[in-house]
């Protein structure tokens, strides 16, 4: 049964991906990518990776698609016919694909519990982490504690993306009088429903943030969901109003603050005589220390991801408004 579901999903993925090659309508291409992302989230669920599925659905299908649509609004939605031959790319792909298939021949069989992947490092995470770190969700334990430095790096990557987008697009606040009519004034129903939903979305984000220790979730997903709530607000009520709720200047402080919060846990543990990011030193009981550490760094991650995602959206949206005015 599981194999059947897998096969159907994979087949749908293949069809979606192939369709993207031949479509010239970029709007459809981007929507297909959203579908592709959702389908892969389903695959991740069926392969037991619930945290990854959650992230893929919120980040890949959510934020990426929104940003791509925002770009299309600025660049036009049809791809022009291109004449140059596609033989060379095809050859490159065939060679690369052949190499990969050759590589799969010695791969351990799918799903086998004796595979090397499950033998050397992973058993400790599965067997010891509930005792050493004290969290039922092993993904969170590994993410935030065993490989906490990776996660710091990842938060910095998000921060670096914000630097890139800010330097490229900037977020310009125009004075009130030249502000065009923005937001969806006509859509009365949408305005009411959005107002009703936004508190729940923020609540859900907080739930995901703090429940990540016990179930799927954590700072990344929470940050993205919280950002989505404000993106919804900005879409329905217009950017100037959204700027009054959370201004771009404030976000510009919030993004580095999250990274610093994360890093300060590491510095504090150095100060307490441990190594960088050694949460055991944060409290007299190591497991309690782990718990404090993970809560604080997840919060740092959530804050940075929220601030960065929202300011990236602001940057794209203010570009779109500007081009509307012109």
């Amino acid at each position: 049964m599981a194999v059947l579901i897998d096969l159907v999903l994979l087949a749908m993925l293949a069809i979606t991906a192939l369709r993207v090659i031949f479509l010239k309508d970029l709007f459809a291409v981007v929507m297909l990518f959203g579908i592709y992302s959702f389908l892969s989230a389903l695959i991740f669920v069926s392969l037991d990776a619930v945290d990854v599925a959650f992230t893929e659905a919120s980040v890949g299908a959510g934020i990426s698609t929104v940003l791509m649509l925002g770009t299309l609004a600025l660049t036009g939605r049809t791809e022009k016919e291109n004449k140059h031959s596609s033989l060379l790319p095809f050859l490159v792909v065939v060679v690369t694909g052949a190499a990969l298939v050759y590589g799969t021949l010695d791969m351990p069989p799918f799903g086998h519990p004796d595979n090397p992947v499950h033998e050397h490092v992973a058993p400790r995470y599965i067997e010891q982490s509930p005792k050493e770190v004290g969290l039922p969700n092993m993904v969170t334990s590994v993410l935030a504690s065993y490989r906490g430095f990776d996660t710091l790096g990842e938060t910095v990557v998000v921060f670096a993306a914000a630097i890139g987008v800010m330097s490229l697009l900037g977020i310009r606040r125009r004075s009130e009088d030249e502000t065009p009519e923005s937001g969806l004034k006509e859509h009365q129903v949408l305005r009411v429903v959005a107002k009703l939903l936004i508190p729940f979305v923020v609540l859900f984000a907080l739930y995901v943030q703090f429940h990540g220790d016990f179930g799927p979730g954590g700072g990344f997903q929470a940050g993205v969901i919280a950002a989505a709530a404000f993106i919804l607000y900005a879409l329905v009520y217009g950017l100037p109003l959204a700027f009054q709720v959370i201004g771009p200047k404030f976000l510009q402080l919030l993004a580095p603050f999250g990274v610093l919060l994360y890093a300060s846990v590491g510095l504090y543990s150095m100060f307490k005589g441990g190594l960088f990011l050694d949460y055991n030193t944060l409290a007299s009981d190591p497991v309690a220390g782990q718990h404090y550490g993970i809560i604080i760094i997840e919060l740092g991650v959530g804050i940075t991801v929220f601030a960065v995602m929202l300011s990236i959206f602001y940057a794209f949206a203010s570009q779109a408004e500007r081009s509307n005015v012109q």
Binding site: R147, G153, G164, V165, L168, F316
Partner: peptide, 29 residues
């Protein structure tokens, strides 16, 4: 249980991917 380590790696990689996408798209704009 399934192996949690690949999940952790991919969580990281997904976020890295969206960061690259955001910078790439703003370059396009």
């Amino acid at each position: 249980y399934s192996n949690p380590l690949p999940h952790v790696l991919i969580l990281t990689a997904i976020v890295v991917g969206v960061a690259t996408t955001a910078v790439g798209l703003s370059l396009i704009v």
